[in-house]
Amino acid sequence: MKTIITANGSDVNATLDPRFGRCEFFCILDEETGETEFIENKAKLQSSAAGTTAAETVIEQGVKKVISGDFGPKAKSLLDRFGIQMVILKDEGQIIANVINSITGK
């Protein structure tokens, strides 16, 4: 199962980006293999509807779960519509590697 984590940078030492629509990178994690891939969020500089565009990317990637610090209403309703689970982490400063460890149960 694939999961997306919003990240401030392009490797696992980056921290969680608390913004969904305007995050810097998406970390795509394969929960079975533990492999990660980072893609840039093309919506981050968009003047409006960044959340919708980011949700588009997430849906196109075919993931089932998104982990971030916040979701806007439009992004939320789109992700809901396609059955994608949203997770809001309480601690925003976490390092991606730690987030991965906790969700993969390591």
């Binding site: 809901d80 059955g83 994608i84 689970q85 949203m86 997770v87 809001i88 982490l89 906790s102 969700i103």
Partner: peptide, 16 residues
Amino acid sequence: NAFTIPNPRIKRICPV
């Protein structure tokens, strides 16, 4: 942590 359970096939447990 907070999360949604968008469809009934997802287990009702904390994803974290």
